[in-house]
């Protein structure tokens, strides 16, 4: 009875919603893209990054993926652009730019 949330939306008839509105799955929120909330966007300058990872735990949204003790680029599908990581970085490897797109306007 595992839930396929792609089948649950505002058109789903009552007989086909999950019993008691339970969710028989974990982590389904990933398909909800909060990235569009951003008004400012962090840019990752990997060349400046020393991989100290001080930025990774401060993110309220877990948008700084870490693998093998190294961070990679932001999860822009979900990053809300709060800017906490920018201030946590001791090496200026994260820059905040205006707008929802992760591009530097020259």
């Amino acid at each position: 009875m595992r839930t396929d949330i792609s089948r649950i939306n505002e058109h789903t008839p009552y007989e086909e919603l999950t019993e008691g509105l339970m969710m028989f799955a974990g982590g389904t929120s990933k398909s909800f893209k909060t990235g569009e909330w951003r008004t400012n966007t962090p840019i990752f300058h990997s060349e400046k990054c020393k991989q100290c990872l001080l930025c990774a735990p401060v993110c309220p949204d877990g948008c700084i993926p870490v693998k093998d003790s190294k961070r990679s680029d932001f999860d822009y599908d979900h990053c809300k652009g709060c800017g906490i990581c920018v201030k946590a970085c001791p090496f200026n490897a994260i820059e905040m730019v205006p707008g929802v797109e992760p591009v530097i306007n020259s």
Partner: peptide, 13 residues
């Protein structure tokens, strides 16, 4: 098999 009980549900559900 994780399960979640007690959601916030919008009016559409």
């Amino acid at each position: 098999n994780p399960v979640a009980f007690g959601p916030y549900a919008l009016s559409c559900y």
